[in-house]
Design a protein around this nucleic acid. Structure first.
Lengths: 193, 193
DNA sequence: AATTAATTAGACTAATTGGTCTAGTTGAGA
DNA sequence: TCTCAACTAGACCAATTAGTCTAATTAATT
């Protein structure tokens, strides 16, 4: 049966709250309220607010890693086409979100990357894990001569995905997808062979 | 003579504090302490903490706009070379800062862009102002056939500069310039004719 | 010299912060 | 069925939050 509350459910709610509002702008009490748990349970599950936030990032990062793996494994498109369809999907997802939240790993990196070593290294971990999946697809595209070989696959992956992060800064203040679409068109024009 | 304290000096100190620590992680009392002013003076000069932060971003943005204008006006390099030297300088600047702070406009966009309309529009204003300067240089480079004409100057400017913002997320958690240098090499390789 | 508005100074406030503590409850294993 | 650790519950705490208020001081204007 288990007890009343479940860590993963709390982490999922925490993901929403932290992604939308950031780290320092959210109090523990707000998390308790949104998750519907008493403080005792929170501190039974997590050592501190920091520990909670790190675990939120970890869970999201790992879930997303699995999702990405499945996405590319199941794709019947060519490598470059599957990459394009991946980023198209990511941009569309942000549209349904009114372009306001962005990516929690990016948000945490910028807000607390400098002042919190544990969060910094956890965010970096997730990013690298995604990067390796992208690099594999890029590598396949290079072998098929779809993608430029001027740079190696991992570099192109980092270029693409961090470039995508740059679009979030613009999106959050312009609140539209204009620049994300420009980024998409230019990036794929540049890396195509 | 004037009074004891000066708004611009407070804003300059505020720039340092907010850039390094973010918005919600800094209290008004900390600003008072670092600037050496009493609370009465702060609330005499600024309506609120938000008003203060917006004015910090405005002042930095405008100062930087002037600096960029002078940088490109005084440059004796060709357009693409002056762009390269500009970004080289920006990367070096972050190195002296131990790669921890980044750009305040980017930081504020990510941390409070979603939840604070005034800050969002002020950050966007500064970004656009920089963008226009970059676009002018890019346009010159396009006329000289140094830079690709596959995309218009403003699009390339936004692509370049927001891409550079993406590098900050990586920098803040990896705390080195590796990815910034990769970004630099790839971006200029891609936009060169 | 008198008046006035701007500025300085910091004590104070109500609300909120992250976190602790104790008491009671639950569920699984012996 | 008994035992014990995990969990639930929320009152409580010291510190901090953004912001207010009143009084004193300063500089410029009349």
């Amino acid at each position: 049966m288990g007890y009343k509350h479940n860590i993963d459910e709390i982490l999922d709610i925490g993901y929403d709250v932290l992604r939308k509002n950031g780290y320092h702008n959210v109090g523990v009490n707000q998390i308790l309220k949104e998750a519907g748990i008493p403080k005792g349970s929170f501190y039974n599950f997590f050592e501190s607010k920091e520990d909670f936030a790190v675990k939120v990032v970890k869970r999201y990062g790992e879930t997303n890693t699995e999702w990405m793996k499945a996405f590319f494994d199941n794709s019947e498109l060519s490598p470059i086409e599957s990459l394009q369809s991946f980023y198209k999907f990511m941009i569309d997802t942000n549209e349904t979100d009114d372009y306001l939240s962005g990516c929690i790993v990016n948000n945490m990196s910028i807000e607390v990357g400098r002042i919190n070593n544990i969060m910094a290294s956890k965010a970096n971990e997730q990013f690298i894990s995604w990067l390796n999946i992208l690099a594999q697809v890029i590598s396949k595209g290079q072998n098929l001569k779809e993608i430029t070989t001027k740079f190696n696959a991992l570099e192109i992956a980092e270029y693409l995905h961090a470039g995508f992060y740059g679009t979030f800064s613009r999106m959050k203040v312009t609140r539209n997808r204009t620049y994300m679409d420009i980024w998409y068109n230019m990036s794929f024009e540049f890396i195509k062979n």
